[in-house]
């Protein structure tokens, strides 16, 4: 049996911490700090020179036309970008005070402290509702007593506002739920690993308006204890749920760059950059 998998991620992160050096210590004020981030797919550069600092316990929206690299951007924060063959990353990303691309940092440890919700609901098809929520701790090899695991599952299903709907069918396959319920199950699954940051990649794009509304409501509730970054192509959604908004746009070279990052209200009412204004008023994209 593998022991490393059972090691709490904090231990790995602490081990990695000295490597970063005191001189570059990230200010604890930001939950996520991105410095000059660039990402490639093979020879093609998708994003370039993106720098952002995201405040803890806020909702930040990343908006921009499709293909501008906004999904790539948040996948870099979870070290998921590199899973694609040929993909690579430059620059630095701090989550809390951990430099997640430091040479000694284990991507697996990074992923356990950053949660991710994907565009299409993707519950594990072979697992029940219960097992889906418990999947993170279980597959990482944590030995949690049954009672504590029951509590963990219930707590996170409640946080995802799903408990009342599924408490009688915890043993049913996760795939049996409706689309909106599946997405909330995926949120519960991500929350169950107790992430400091929750990344959401267009989480409502495959859902009906009512399910979308419930997830937006949920995001506002969760923002009390989790930092949320949501990628969306829907500007109304961005303005409804977020306090901060980043606008990413691909130039003529096809490479996405950060155009503007500001408080949501400011960005939507008094954008500083003409390209932002063009986008939010619907002149392109």
């Amino acid at each position: 049996m593998d022991r490393t998998g059972a090691r709490p991620p904090e231990a790995l992160l602490e081990a990695a911490a000295p490597a970063r050096g005191a001189a570059v210590a990230a200010p604890a004020a930001s939950a996520v700090r991105i410095d000059s981030l660039g990402a490639w797919y093979g020879a093609r550069k998708a994003i370039e020179g993106i720098s952002l600092a995201i405040a803890p316990r806020t909702v930040t929206a990343v908006i921009g036309p499709s293909g501008c690299g906004k999904s790539t951007l948040i996948r870099c924060v979870d070290r998921l970008h590199e899973v694609t063959p040929g993909a690579r990353v430059e620059g630095r990303v701090h989550v809390g005070d951990v430099d997640i691309y430091a040479p000694g940092t284990d991507p697996v440890a990074v992923r356990s402290m950053v949660g991710m919700v994907f565009q299409k609901p993707n519950p594990f098809p072979t697992m029940s509702v219960y097992e889906n929520v418990a999947a993170g701790p279980r597959l990482r090899g944590s030995r949690i007593p049954r009672g504590a695991l029951d509590d963990l599952v219930e707590r996170n299903l409640r946080r995802a506002a799903l408990w009342d709907e599924v408490k009688d069918k915890l043993g049913r396959p996760g795939a049996d739920l409706s689309g909106g319920q599946q997405q909330r199950l995926c949120i519960a699954r991500a929350l169950a690993t107790d992430p400091a940051v929750l990344l959401m990649d267009e989480p409502c794009s495959a859902l009906d308006p009512i399910s979308t509304y419930r997830i937006e409501e949920l995001m506002r509730e969760l923002a009390g204890d989790v930092t949320i970054v949501i990628v969306t192509h829907n500007m109304q959604q961005a303005s409804r749920v977020s306090e901060w908004t980043a606008f990413v746009l691909a130039g003529d070279d096809g490479i996405g760059r950060l155009v503007e990052f500001d408080a949501t209200e400011q960005l939507f009412t008094k954008p500083a950059d003409p390209r932002t204004e063009a986008y939010i008023t619907g002149r392109f994209g």
């Binding site: 993909a87 690579r88 990353v89 430091a102």
Partner: peptide
């Protein structure tokens, strides 16, 4: 740049 692919990492 820490450009580890899946294999390297």
């Amino acid at each position: 740049p820490p450009t580890r692919g899946l294999l390297g990492g």
